[in-house]
């Protein structure tokens, strides 16, 4: 493939062009065509990230200013109750949604993999929520969990008078109300991933385990699950990076309430930046988000690409 020398001046290119349409000239086109990519990579992904990190050490409020105050924003951040609640919520939501997505996703995939009738119908039903936005998801579940008209009232009218299930107005369990909606929206996709993984397993492995007389459940646990490691890692990365970004769902379903009981970090950042005119707080909080992504991402990247040293 054409790998040309980078250190050519534009005039050299001009000359080349008039002489013969060679590799260098053609590759110049490729470079020009790649300008949007290069600009995005450098200006947005590197530039903006660095800019935000740098400004998180300032005391910017309404407008960004380069008056450095050291780690003051971070200290203040970790003293803010709202941020602590956000972190706690994220932790609960994260752990639960990770476990539930894996369990539900894998179980459904395994059930669908048992050569059942109507597989396509079930798959379609499990996956459609993934096509919907978090806003739609949040609003539907807000309505279904509505204490006056939703599940709680229906069950009560069936005769179980004392039944109480009102997560969205109960500060202690509101995050689980959001979890129900989040799992509903996303677990179908994890199922699809897992199903693809299961379908990728050599048919002969199943045959061998039948000849060996291994029960189906034991084959899954002892043989198949260990073989699915790459799929699990992909799912893990996808779920985690999704969890950290949770924002719209909370905005739509609870607006962070009751009180501040269902706040999440992403929402904290946006509000500090665009509503309470406390830019540097927002920058510091978003830097913390970046840090948590890196904690997940770096080990993964190391596992995935660390072995082979070729980009």
């Amino acid at each position: 493939m054409a790998i040309a020398d980078d250190a050519q001046s534009p005039s050299a290119v001009q000359r080349e062009r008039t002489q013969r349409p060679n590799r260098l000239f053609k590759n110049m086109t490729a470079k020009i065509a790649s300008i949007p990519m290069v600009a995005t990579a450098l200006v947005i992904f590197v530039g903006c990230t660095v800019w935000t990190i740098v400004h998180s050490f300032t005391n910017s409020r309404l407008l960004p200013r380069l008056e450095f105050v050291g780690f003051e924003q971070y200290e203040r951040l970790w003293e803010t109750r709202r941020w602590l609640v956000s972190i706690e919520n994220l932790a609960i939501y994260g752990v639960c949604s990770l476990i539930l997505s894996f369990v539900i996703g894998f179980t459904l995939a395994a059930l669908l993999d048992r050569k059942i009738r109507g597989e396509a119908v079930f798959r379609t039903i499990f996956l459609y929520p993934f096509a919907l936005s978090f806003i739609v998801t949040g609003l539907v579940w807000q309505w279904i969990l509505n204490p006056q008209f939703g599940i709680q009232s229906v069950v009560q009218r069936w005769g179980w008078e004392s039944f109480a299930f009102d997560p969205l107005n109960n500060a202690d369990i509101v995050i689980y109300g959001i979890l129900i909606a989040g799992i509903w929206q996303g677990s179908g996709f994890i199922m699809v991933l897992m199903l693809a993984g299961l379908r990728g397993i050599d048919e002969d492995i199943w045959k061998a385990s039948r000849v060996d007389g291994i029960p189906v459940w034991k084959t899954y646990v002892v043989v198949i699950i260990p073989m699915m490691r790459p799929v699990f890692i992909t799912a893990l990365v996808i779920i985690t990076s999704g969890i950290i970004k949770v924002y719209d769902l909370v905005v739509a379903q609870t607006s962070g309430g009751p009180g501040i009981a269902s706040e999440v970090p992403a929402k904290y950042v946006i509000e500090k930046m665009f509503q309470s005119q406390n830019l540097a707080q927002g920058f510091a909080a978003s830097t913390m988000m970046l840090l948590s992504v890196l904690i997940v991402l770096i080990p993964w990247a190391y596992l995935e690409f660390g072995g082979k040293k070729r980009g």
Binding site: A2, S34, M37, A41, F45, T49, G311
Partner: peptide, 27 residues
């Protein structure tokens, strides 16, 4: 049409997909 550095930019781009949007929104 790989050129010198194209893979580097690509790697940055892919890692960029994981950066929380909140970090880049204000700039």
């Amino acid at each position: 049409w790989k050129f010198k550095g194209s893979e580097v930019f690509f790697t940055i781009l892919i890692f960029g997909a994981f950066i929380p949007y909140q970090v880049m929104i204000y700039p």
